[in-house]
C-alpha cells in the first residue's frame, strides 16, 4: 500500500525486471571473468558443480543458507520500520559469544541437551542485547543506527578476538583457528555422512513462517509498516514509534544471535574469530534483492549460498579468486537498484 509503483505487482513486469537484471549481470560477470583470463563458461560450470554437484555440496549450501535466512528474516523487521540494521554482523557475533559462554560452563554437564537449549536462549539474548544497545542509542541518544551498528560490529569483533586470544584461549597456544573444540555431546546432531544439522534447518524454516505470519497478518507487522512509512503520523495515532523500533531491533538481533549460535553448535563446534563469515552483511544484500519481501528471502538466500559455496574451489581449479561470488551478488543488487531507479526516473519525466 505504500508502494507508489503499482506496476511492480504485475507478474509480467516483475518477470521482465528479473530478466533484464539477470542478463545485465551475466554480461558484466562474463566480461569480468574474461578480463581475469579464465574461461567464463567453465567458471559458471564450476560454481554450479561446486554447489549443487553432489549431496555433500548441497549440504554445505544449506549450511550457509541457514544463518543467511535467519539474519535476513530478522532484517525484514528492521527494514519494515525504516531502520538500517547494519549492526546485524555484530549481533550474530555476540550470539555466538554468549552461546559459547554457556557451552563452556556446561561441558561437564550430565544433560548436554539441556545445555544446548540454554545456549540457544543465550545466543538469542546475546544478539538481542547487542541490537537493543544500538536501538537505545538511536531512540535515547540520537545516534544514527547505521553508525551505532557499525561501531558495535567492530566492538564485537574486538571482544571475540580478545576472548579467543585471552580468557578462552586453547591450552598451549592461542591462534586464529579459535577456541578448543567442544565435546561431541554438545554438537547438534547431524544427518549421517553429511555435516548438516537438521535442527538448524528447522529453525530457519520456522523463522520464515513466523516472519511471514507476523509481518503479513499480525497487528505488529502493520504497525511496523505504519511507523516505517510515517513515524510522526503513527505517533499522532497513538502508537509508540520508539518502542516498536526497539522491538524490531530485538527481533532482528534475536534471529542473528540464533544464527551465531548455530554457527557454533552446528557447524564449527568452537568459537572462531570469523564465526559470522560475513553472513550478516550478506543478509542485507539478500533482503535488498528480495525487495524486502518475505517470500523471496529463502530463494535468494539459497542462490547466494550456492554462489558462496560454489566459488570456494575456483582458486584451485581456475586460479581465480573466490571473491567472484561477492562480485556477482553485489552486481545483482546494484543492477536491481539501477533498474528500479530508472523506472522511477522514466515515470517522473
Amino acid at each position: 500500500m505504500t508502494r507508489n509503483t503499482p506496476q511492480s505487482h504485475q507478474p509480467l513486469k516483475v518477470l521482465q525486471n528479473i530478466s533484464i537484471t539477470a542478463a545485465t549481470v551475466f554480461c558484466f560477470t562474463f566480461i569480468l571473468i574474461m578480463a581475469s583470463g579464465a574461461p567464463p563458461f567453465k567458471a559458471f560450470f564450476y560454481i554450479f558443480k561446486g554447489s549443487l554437484g553432489s549431496w555433500v555440496k548441497l549440504s554445505h549450501v544449506i549450511q550457509a543458507w541457514v544463518p543467511l535466512t535467519l539474519c535476513a528474516c530478522g532484517l525484514l523487521y528492521t527494514f519494515r520500520i525504516g531502520l538500517w540494521n547494519i549492526g546485524i554482523e555484530g549481533q550474530m557475533i555476540m550470539g555466538a559469544v554468549f552461546s559459547t559462554a554457556v557451552l563452556r560452563l556446561g561441558t561437564q554437564s550430565a544433560f548436554p541437551w539441556f545445555v544446548l537449549i540454554l545456549s540457544f536462549v543465550a545466543g538469542v539474548i546475546g544478539g538481542g542485547l547487542w541490537a537493543v544497545i544500538a536501538g537505545f542509542l538511536k531512540t535515547r541518544s540520537g545516534v544514527n543506527e547505521i553508525f551505532a551498528g557499525l561501531g558495535l560490529n567492530f566492538v564485537a569483533q574486538g571482544i571475540i578476538l580478545w576472548l579467543i586470544f585471552g580468557p578462552w584461549k586453547r591450552p598451549g597456544v592461542a591462534s586464529m583457528s579459535g577456541t578448543e573444540v567442544f565435546p561431541t555431546e554438545l554438537w547438534l546432531g547431524t544427518i549421517k555422512s553429511l555435516r548438516l544439522a537438521p535442527v538448524g534447518v528447522g529453525f530457519a524454516v520456522l523463522a520464515i513462517i513466523t516472519s511471514a505470519i507476523l509481518l503479513r497478518y499480525s497487528s505488529i507487522g502493520l504497525r511496523l509498516r505504519a511507523i516505517g512509512s510515517n513515524s510522526h503520523a503513527s505517533y499522532l495515532f497513538g502508537m509508540k514509534p520508539n518502542q516498536y523500533m526497539l522491538l524490531a531491533m530485538l527481533l532482528a538481533g534475536g534471529f542473528a544471535g540464533l544464527a551465531g549460535n548455530l554457527q557454533v553448535t552446528g557447524v564449527y563446534h568452537r568459537l572462531l574469530p570469523a564465526i559470522s563469515s560475513n553472513y550478516g552483511y550478506l543478509a542485507l544484500l539478500v533482503v535488498m534483492l528480495a525487495d524486502y519481501k518475505v517470500w523471496a528471502v529463502p530463494a535468494i538466500a539459497f542462490f547466494f549460498a550456492c554462489l558462496n559455496v560454489g566459488s570456494i574451489q575456483l582458486p584451485m581449479v581456475l586460479q581465480v579468486d573466490s571473491s567472484l561470488s561477492g562480485v556477482i551478488q553485489g552486481a545483482l543488487v546494484l543492477a536491481t537498484l539501477a533498474l528500479s531507479g530508472w523506472r522511477r526516473f522514466q515515470t517522473a519525466n
Binding site: 552483511y281 550478506l282 571473491s323 567472484l324 562480485v327 553485489g330 543488487v333 546494484l334 537498484l337
Partner: peptide
C-alpha cells in the same frame, strides 16, 4: 553499502 562489499571483492578478483 553494496559498493563497499562489491568493490572489495572486485579488487580481490581482478587483482589476483
Amino acid at each position: 553499502f553494496v559498493l563497499t562489499l562489491m568493490a572489495r571483492d572486485l579488487a580481490y578478483f581482478l587483482g589476483n
